[in-house]
Design a protein around this nucleic acid. Structure first.
Length: 275
DNA sequence: CGCTGACCCTGACGGC
DNA sequence: TGCCGTCAGGGTCAGC
């Protein structure tokens, strides 16, 4: 899955559904990480999809009555299925749309590992999934100063800190690894020991790498794919360290190391990345 | 309050 | 070919 660039790619692909009306919603099991909002089976039909958006790694489908919040977890994906296509083993939810221009469209959610979430946020209510989230890395409210300030209270390794959505959202294991390599920062370095200047550089590299990944349609790993079955190419073709432990660094030839930080594999170059 | 590690679940892959 | 161990993009929670 799905880090920010992948979810952004999906959200952009689903923009074509804006203005369509829901005919039906089907759930094929009780839930994923939490129970499905089964009340939608009765409430969602007839609702107009006003807007498709994204906050952090959450896909947002906005209707007059509320917002459907979808998180793809580790292995989730969304695609537009043909009406006659039988659901596969891990296809857990369908939303059927119809309206001007598109004819029929069926949005189908697949999630083998079931770490994803589907939640309903009625209009006028907040959602615990969206509360407490930090800044969007690609919004004007995020820059090196903001990042540096957020790191001051953090004694954890810098890689763990930038993957914490209270610091900045949407930076998962691939892009955290890549941004730290680009910025020349040892992922084990304590977050609150990073100078202002290096925080400014890191913020810029996070933004550049995320933008680049979005432009390439995200990364396709294992079973992630785009809405129309297309594949992104970022991690396989452009990653400098992620997934390359044991290989020589492209920049300097040093063997890429793998260190466990915050319970996650962290690939880094001991020569290019300094404390 | 912050940090660490365990955990949720299935499938893919490599070694034997 | 098949069996088994290991690992995987995320988020949450208990325990310290």
């Amino acid at each position: 899955m799905p880090e920010l660039p992948e979810v952004e790619t999906v959200a952009r692909s689903l923009k074509k559904l804006e203005g369509q009306t829901v005919h039906a919603i089907h759930f094929r099991r009780g839930g994923l990480r939490e129970p499905f909002p089964v009340e939608l089976v009765a409430q969602l039909p007839g609702q107009l999809l006003r807007r498709v958006g994204r906050r952090s790694k959450y896909l947002l489908l906005e209707f007059p009555a509320g917002t459907l919040i979808v998180h793809l977890g580790m292995s989730g994906s969304v695609r537009l299925a043909r009406a006659d296509e039988a659901p596969a083993k891990h296809d857990h939810m369908d939303i059927d749309f119809g309206g001007p221009g598109l004819g029929q469209a069926r949005l189908r959610l697949r999630d083998p590992r079931r770490f994803g979430v589907v939640a309903w946020q009625p209009t006028g209510h907040s959602s615990r999934h969206l509360e407490g989230l930090g800044p969007e890395p690609l919004d004007p409210g995020f820059d090196g100063e903001v990042l540096h300030a957020a790191l001051q209270r953090r004694g954890s390794p810098i890689k763990v800190a930038i993957m914490d959505p209270r610091v900045v959202v949407g930076v998962g294991n691939i892009y955290a690894s890549e941004a730290l390599h680009a910025a020349g920062i040892d992922p084990r370095k304590r977050a609150n020991s990073l100078s202002r200047a290096r925080a400014v550089r890191l913020a810029g590299d996070i933004q550049r790498i995320l933008r680049d990944a979005i432009a390439r349609g995200g990364s396709t790993l294992r079973d992630f794919h785009g809405v129309d079955g297309n594949v992104g190419t970022y991690a396989q073709q452009h990653a400098k360290v992620y997934g390359r432990a044991g290989e020589p660094c492209e920049t300097c030839g040093t063997t890429i190391k793998n260190t466990i930080l915050g319970g996650r594999a962290s690939a880094w170059c001991p020569t290019c990345q300094k404390r």
